[in-house]
Design a protein around this nucleic acid. Structure first.
Ligand SMILES: [Mn+2]
Ligand SMILES: [Mn+2]
Ligand SMILES: [Zn+2]
Ligand SMILES: [Zn+2]
Lengths: 148, 148
DNA sequence: GATCCTGTTGCAACTGGTCGCAATCGCCAT
DNA sequence: ATGGCGATTGCGACCAGTTGCAACAGGATC
């Protein structure tokens, strides 16, 4: 179930320039990694990969940059049901929201795009008069293979 | 938007007895707090409240008991969009799942029960052949008052 | 009630994430 | 190109959550 990737690589750096956010050596490395990551990196992985591009990148800079990206709505933060520990996972926000499913037995992560999800957000916005900025639906359970 | 509370107080301790889980002084205190909590406690609050009932309760016991309750599906773990820091929040699982909305400006937490949410879970279960055990929808945005 | 066995606990060490601070570095104006 | 200012960084200290371990306490059995 691959998702459509309509965003171009290099888009994150472009966003920074457009919005007048200062670009640094370290941020360049971190953004680079986020851009090219296939999926769902945690902070430690991101740090290791970024340090390969710029050895000076520090743990705290990674966390600060993640916060920055979150604040600007450029990435999503996920728990993935905390299947692999306490930490959080990050992925670039694409144009279409998607649901995450995590198999509690084999640990597989699945993604799913649904119109009903869009309807549901519409209902929340309307019935609760709530202006939605970010949403996150995570489901834990057993995948087809593990259910058998 | 108050939710129906159909579970009786003392239900958590009953669950433990039914399932043959050992009951200890410390667990009694922690469960007591979870039972009577109005809402959304974080680990630190839970620890403080539990220690008022049994001063010997240790941090690690609180975390271990939370894991136990999670594993048995008796509580839900929430991020509440990390509005107040990194930590997690906990609440007793009631019979009806509900959505959490967090206002990014005033910090208010709202809850919402929706049939569309149930439909959506049905669709995921069917289309992805995924047996859902736990689900969590959290939304961040601006409440009616703060949108104005 | 005493005994036993196993699950649970407190503690202390460790890990991962945060924060305040002084040094540094982007970036804009000259 | 240079200078200056404020934003950003690395660092170290800190705090929250986890884990291994030896002591302890449920509760089942007699
Ligand atoms: Mn994803
Ligand atoms: Mn979380
Ligand atoms: Zn599986
Ligand atoms: Zn508000």
């Amino acid at each position: 179930m691959p998702l459509p990737k309509t965003e171009m690589p290099g888009r994150l750096q472009a966003h920074f320039r457009e919005r007048g956010i200062r670009m640094t050596q370290q941020r360049r490395a971190i953004l680079q990694v986020m851009e090219t990551a296939s999926k769902h990196l945690d902070a430690a992985q991101l740090l290791r990969k970024a340090q390969k591009l710029d050895a000076s990148v520090d743990r705290s800079t990674v966390y600060r940059t993640l916060q920055l990206l979150k604040r600007h709505g450029l990435i999503d933060e996920l728990d993935l049901m905390h299947i692999h520990g306490e930490g959080h996972y990050y992925e670039r926000k694409l144009n279409r929201d998607h649901i995450h499913m995590a198999c509690l037995r084999c640990g597989k992560i699945m993604e799913f795009v649904s119109d009903i999800f869009e309807n549901l957000k519409g209902q929340v916005a309307k019935d609760c008069r709530f202006r939605i900025v970010v949403s996150r639906l995570e489901i834990g359970g057993y995948c087809a293979a593990c259910s058998k």
